[in-house]
């Protein structure tokens, strides 16, 4: 059973500190959710765990089963069992989904060994069907020309194929319509098992209607400021975040300046407004 342990993590981007002492432990079989308004450092946490080159860790530790994650390159982290479903997956024209996933699976085997082609195709076809994606997905270029929803489903498809020990889903719900959200939710829930630890990062609680979380955390000012059970989620759902800010005496919860948000704010809030109508 895998254990991802984050202790007192500090990280900065372009000389601006975004994470200011995050501590969190995720064990196999657990599903954690980090909630919080935009700009509080949630996505930065995900990127730092996966080793995005833009972020610099200034203090603290991350370990996976005792091994020092911060010492590993991004690809080593992935092969050690970490997976990040990204908020804005890259488009890579010219690289087919099939070639990409096959190469990723082979990277987990010893040198010279390859996944059985028959098994691979069967598994990929099953995953495509389960995520209700276009049948020609294996031959399409990686996320190239995909709709927002397709990209998100493709992240979950990769998760299905790569079978990580710890999966982080960063705003997997943003940009999804209700049907796609249901498909994603069902697939993730189906993957749950005592060996898989999950961290859901979300701005809005509706994804948690489809993927049950047993630990809920609230992030503000680059730190986890409150943790609890699903009750906490329900309270946020009803009352928003203001009561937490009041309780903790936080005036401005943000730590990421708005211009660095790259339109995420707009996307998430637009979905929310659409739903509330």
């Amino acid at each position: 059973m895998a254990v991802l342990k984050i202790e007192n993590l500090h990280a900065k981007v372009e000389n601006q500190e975004i994470l200011k002492g995050v501590s969190l432990e995720i064990k196999g079989g657990e599903t954690h959710a980090i909630m919080g308004p935009n700009g509080t450092g949630k996505s930065t946490l995900a990127s730092v765990i996966m080793g995005h080159p833009r972020y610099e860790v200034t203090a603290g530790t991350i370990t996976l089963d005792g091994a020092d994650v911060l010492e590993m390159e991004t690809d080593e982290r992935a092969r050690a069992g970490l997976f990040l479903a990204m908020q804005a997956p890259q488009e890579v024209p010219g690289v087919t989904n099939s070639d990409f996933i096959k190469t990723a699976m082979n990277a987990r085997l010893d040198e010279g060994e390859n996944v059985s082609l028959f098994k691979f195709i069967k598994e990929l076809d099953t995953a495509v069907a389960k995520l209700k994606m276009r049948e020609d997905l294996p031959h399409r270029y990686l996320n190239d020309g995909f709709s927002g929803g397709e990209k998100k489903r493709n992240e979950i498809l990769q998760m299905r194929m790569l079978k990580p020990a710890i999966a982080i889903l960063d705003e997997i719900d943003s940009g999804l319509d209700i049907d796609a959200l249901k498909i994603v939710g069902e697939n993730v829930t189906e993957m749950k098992n005592p060996d898989l630890g999950m961290l859901l990062i979300t701005h809005y609680s509706r994804i948690l209607d489809y993927i049950a979380a047993d630990h809920v955390h609230v992030m503000m000012k680059g730190r986890i400021v409150k943790s609890g059970s699903t009750d906490l989620m329900h309270k946020i759902d009803q009352d928003g975040y203001d009561w937490i800010k009041e309780e903790l005496g936080i005036e401005d919860e943000r730590v990421v300046p708005e211009e660095n948000e790259e339109g995420i704010l707009l996307g998430s809030c637009a979905t929310r407004e659409a739903l509330e109508k």
Binding site: H52, P53, T74, A78, M86, P93, G94, A107, R108, Q158
Partner: peptide, 22 residues
């Protein structure tokens, strides 16, 4: 793009090769 491919476990060399192949 490189980061994205590497985040799935591809070595930097494999990731580069795929992108250039692309």
């Amino acid at each position: 793009q490189l980061y994205y491919l590497m985040s799935r476990g591809l070595s930097e060399k494999d990731a580069q090769r795929l992108i250039i192949n692309g």
